[in-house]
Nucleic acid binder design. Sequence first.
RNA 1: GGGCGAUUAGCUCAGCUGGUUCAGAGCACCUGCCUUACAAGCAGGGGGUCAUUGGUUCGAAUCCAUUAUCGCCCACCA
Length: 932
Amino acid sequence: MSLSTRYNPKETEAKWYAHWEANNYFHSEPDDREPFTIVIPPPNVTGVLHMGHMLNNTIQDVLIRRARMQGKNACWVPGTDHASIATEAKVVQQLRKQGIKKGDISREEFMNHAWEWKEKYGGIILDQLKKLGASCDWQRTRFTMEESLSNAVIQVFVDLYKKGKLYRGLRMTNWDPEAKTVLSNEEVIYKEENSQLFHIRYPFEDNPNDGIVIATQRPETIMADVAIAVHPDEPKYKPFVGKNVLIPLINKPIPIIADGYVDREFGTGALKITPAHDQNDLDVGKRHNLPVVDILTEDGKLNENAQVLVGEDRFVARKKIKKLLEDSGCLVKIEDYRTNIGHSERTDAVVEPRLTNQWFLDMKDFAKTALHAVKSGEVKFYPESMWNMYYQWLQEDNVRDWCISRQLWWGQRIPAWYILKSAVISPQSAAKAEQFSEADRWVENGEEVVIVAKTAELALEQAKAKTGNNSMTINDLEQDEDVVDTWFSSWLWPLAVFDGFETKEELKYYYPTSVLVTGWDIMFFWVARMIMAGYEWSEELLGADLKGKMPFKDVYFTGMVRDNKRRKMSKSLGNSPEALELIENYGADGVRFGMLLSGSAGNDIIFDAPFDPVTKEVLDESKLCEQGRNFCNKMWNALRLIKGWETADLEQSEVNALAVKWIKDKFDQTLASVESNFAQYRLGDVLMGLYQVIWDDFCSWYLEIIKPSYVSEGVSEPLDRKTYEATIEVFEKMMSALHPFMPFVTEEIWHQLRKRREGNDCIVTSYPTAGRVDKDLIIKVEKAKDAITKIRDARSGKGVSPKEPLKLSVQNTSSAQDMYALHGLAGLLQKMGNLSELTLIDQEPSNAMAFISGTEKYFLEMDIQIDLEAERERLTKELEYNKGFVASVEKKLSNERFVSGAPSQVVDNERKKLADGVEKIRILEEALGKLG
RNA sequence: GGGCGAUUAGCUCAGCUGGUUCAGAGCACCUGCCUUACAAGCAGGGGGUCAUUGGUUCGAAUCCAUUAUCGCCCACCA
């Protein structure tokens, strides 16, 4: 058998992933084991794998794989989100390429195209997750718009309406002119940008030569002005209140009003009131009974109301109106200005405040329960500090009602119907029909009559009752055109992925899920709302079977992945490495290693891009992935070494027996820290611990200790079976401990180590647990390692080859006797230090180099002239250090308040330090004395 | 404007309730090695007043306060 000197991830990864899938290891069915459940944060169907996903899903996979190995019923539910806005935009774009305009086709036709698109491209990201090694239960793959999930959305909508938590109303909303839909407050991202403040003079109607100057960022909206407001106490403006001014360019008279809202210090102290395009102006307008003039179209162009620049885009209009104002002499000045501008989270278009009729969810009670959930500890956040952000957002005065309707087609259509004028077909209904809206819908108390029901049929029933008109048909109703916000379906994800809202059998078993792993950037969009939904419906759904209302017990917040300049990785910046190329270059295990080691919960991840963002050239910079790849290679070569050994029925040497005991203990020690770190989701620390024990202890020390020496070129002595067997055992245990982190290489080595029976795979072997540790043994071996290091140091310092055997002696003291009473320790020292002999002596040898390791004094005989001066200098330095050390300890111990105040254990420790220090000083002084 | 968090080696970060894993890890760096598992490697090494200034304490990287710098979240000032 010959194995390549380099580990080859590519074929190995494909092989094992297929093997795991073929054995159905990822699939979970409810049984009597304890469940361990994770629902994936569903990536957008439009998405391709990026660094954030890789981080996120690597963490989830580590947790799920470990749980599986611990014998829990591990279930990781994958799926995708329909992502209303993003997907609809993609489909519209695609149709446009085919020469089809969205406005020219029916809703149904559009939906057909959209579903087609989804079928074709929607699974890409999930396939990419497989490359990463994600052990999702693919048979459970869900989609937020599949039938059962959509039904849940409808059900919830109806329920909330019945509970009086949903309402429809005309409000100032955030309008995305690009997507042509309204957005929730959370979907508006404010960015500080350079802007300009236009100072514009509005001439008095009765005295056009004089006027009042206002300041605005948005000169293109002056045509929508309905008043100029000044502060009531401002003497400068007081005389003008009640007068009219003329809007420049269109010469429309509007009144000057007084309102306390105006800040006298800002700008000119006079404010234009534009109720259609600003919330505050709307409030002011309402107080003064002013009309609303809307001058913008749904795609952000000026409409006929504007009178000038009709049809121009708002930003083009801004530029052009500047010129017009200049020409009219009304532009006083322009100053530079920095201000926050809201952008659409999805399209990045500048959001337009716009008065529209929308559906809102009353958040007051939801906010309270969501707050309570975390406060009470029902849900735990990792890191805990994320709670601060969460808390602040859910404060009563901070949380605003959630606008859930969207003017899109791709999504769950709102189950609300309006009664049409045509329903007036009997005298009975005619009597009830007092008024109709512009859309010819029935109006009651000034509002359109709404019927909310799960289906059109049920809505019709209700409508009949309402109108008293039994001959009404479905054609007399009109369903709301809007769909719900994507997040209005995602917030049900943990409740709905198991069996929709239908059978509940699986929900009983899997709910609440164990942990949610997600980025903190969607804390408000998603995490908080899932908690709300869990609180609202889990009890109704599960009744007596409820194990907890919260959708998850823990939330692990990952940081944002940033580049080495601390910029958030994004497509537009082009600073994100191609996830798949990364896997291609370093292997999935290498990349997983890199992701896991680069940060802890909540902390942002600085991830060096391995590719130049501009040239796409490979930079030799993605150190952590490289480290991961190298680690794979290291383990691979350890495997090659071990597999190359011949074995024989030999007596196990003392050295080997000691080495085996030591590595087992050492690994158990690591396993103990693995357990505690896992409990705190410190995955990076777990991985580093395993990395160190495998690389340093196992490869660098253990394997070197037991490595059989060679007889002649290419031929080495056989190894005793007992040691060989133990080595395999430790190695495979290490592989199983590492498996959740680096599943592919560990599975491969697992199988290379032994012939395995069908089904004996690393992925399903039981996760190792820590055993008892012989601390004394570990300490003694550590001391021996220190001595060996000093020997090597001495060799390299004196230019003596490691190949040249040397004589070493130890001063015969009781502690030396105790140390070397450990069987095999002397042999270990001899082998690793390449010593021809190791003896305890009472008489110091001549021409030997002395060094101290622990409290032992060693003499290394080398066949070279010892430089007495250098020796003296080295020893003096060490002596000085120890004297200083002892002095500080003595000072501590002579402080009575320390001796009486500190715990006795601490004081005892100090005493021991002192004793050791004094002994070292004695040895050093003695050695220096000998040098003369 | 309100709030949160950070500041420890050249870089990225650990350091839990103050005292032996108290100044750590990984990477980078320096020196020497193509030693028959691995140069994607081996052996050895250097490097920090724990941001500032005070305070509490027998004892502070750790607790308190202050200042500075950075980051983030929230908020309608035209």
